[in-house]
Write a protein that binds this DNA or RNA. Sequence first.
DNA 1: CAAATATACATAGAAAAACTATGTATGCAA
DNA 2: TTGCATACATAGTTTTTCTATGTATATTTG
Lengths: 117, 117
Amino acid sequence: MYMTTMYSKELLKGTLTTIILKLLAHNEKMYGYEITQRVKLLSEGKILLKEGSLYPALHKLKNEGLVDTEKEMVDNRMRKYYYLTEKGNASTLEKVNELNQFIATLQHILITKPQTS
Amino acid sequence: MYMTTMYSKELLKGTLTTIILKLLAHNEKMYGYEITQRVKLLSEGKILLKEGSLYPALHKLKNEGLVDTEKEMVDNRMRKYYYLTEKGNASTLEKVNELNQFIATLQHILITKPQTS
DNA sequence: CAAATATACATAGAAAAACTATGTATGCAA
DNA sequence: TTGCATACATAGTTTTTCTATGTATATTTG
């Protein structure tokens, strides 16, 4: 058995919405719990999305018109599926692009000049 | 003349402290205004660090014992130089490492499965 | 069979981080 | 003399994620 160290939670700030949108772009419809599990899987247990973070984020996306929902009963349990609207699709492209550029800039700052050896 | 689009400010959250520490690791001592200019330069104008973000962040680093300061007068203007303590040096290594891993995870999420072509 | 864990949603209130706006002050250029 | 660049500082706001809690059903485990 091994320990996966979680990232400090602050790192997620500003990137969570983009992550959610990107997952929806892949899967055309996902429900909340599924998203938490997918993120956990993709991050190898290092990003553990909490309900208190996820659901408000999803509700906000819906208010902004980037996603829409449909409810379904599976095994007597309610599932609320989220899917991208056309607006959401466009927004995803923009946000993923911006995040990629930000990452490139970050790496530029983190890598340059590793001090006189 | 050209416009550089700034990143949405949320992206910086969680990474600012690490950026500051990394710059200090390169330069052994820097003052606040210098840090804002360096970040602007390294990010090609896409990260514009505000005083309201920088100075509280620096004060916090000092309270935590990761940096120490010395004042100097240059051209009749006060400069407060910040430099890493030993503790700050160790912390920088950890934080840069964590950020690099987080970036790798993010890219993994952002890149995988670009939808059935 | 009871208790714990997993599935599935939701929200109120706290904490953290960066921001806006403002203040002080000097030096230089238009 | 007006504005811009340099140089620091902080009060208060906004945003985001978190913790904690609540409801409810299904499954696994002791």
